[in-house]
């Protein structure tokens, strides 16, 4: 059994689909943050068989977790304060996302004006469709 120490303040992202943790690591911009991050891959899970877990030691207002709702709404977000779980956040699809996705339409204005924020708006909640704020091109999830 692998042991990873508990954290004092931050998040534990549980029930991540096995193999998806590195994708989430990049989506959340954790590579750019100066904080402790533990990634546990392929942990045994009664519910899922295998799962990934990410533990992040940081102030809770540093990370915008909205994007997680877009990636996988089944992820459990545990908010840790003074080494205890104080809240479990339910994930919903964010209404918009800024600088998370990138428009791949070669005709989009963002292809030539790269200082523009990459903004995607949720246009169809049922089908989870996001469109570029500018050219309205649909984002095709990888």
């Amino acid at each position: 059994m692998l042991n990873v120490g508990s954290i004092k303040e931050g998040f534990v992202l549980d029930h991540i689909k096995a193999g998806k943790s590195m994708e989430i690591y990049h989506y959340l911009g954790l590579d750019k943050l100066d904080c402790q991050v533990a990634i546990i891959k392929n942990a045994k899970s009664n519910k899922m068989g295998h799962k990934d877990i990410i533990k992040i030691e940081c102030p809770i207002d540093v990370i915008n977790l909205d994007v997680l709702g877009y990636i996988d709404h089944n992820i459990t977000v545990n908010i840790i304060h003074d080494s205890a779980i104080v809240d479990k956040q339910k994930l919903t699809l964010p209404k918009s996302m800024k600088n998370v996705l990138k428009c791949v339409n070669p005709r989009c204005i963002t292809s030539i004006e790269q200082e523009l924020d990459q903004i995607f708006i949720l246009t169809d909640e049922k089908k989870k469709v996001y469109r570029c704020r500018y050219c309205e091109e649909k984002y095709n999830k990888l």
Partner: peptide, 10 residues
């Protein structure tokens, strides 16, 4: 009028 899509929105 702009050849790039979304320019007027910007």
């Amino acid at each position: 009028r702009h050849p790039k899509e979304g320019a007027p929105t910007v």
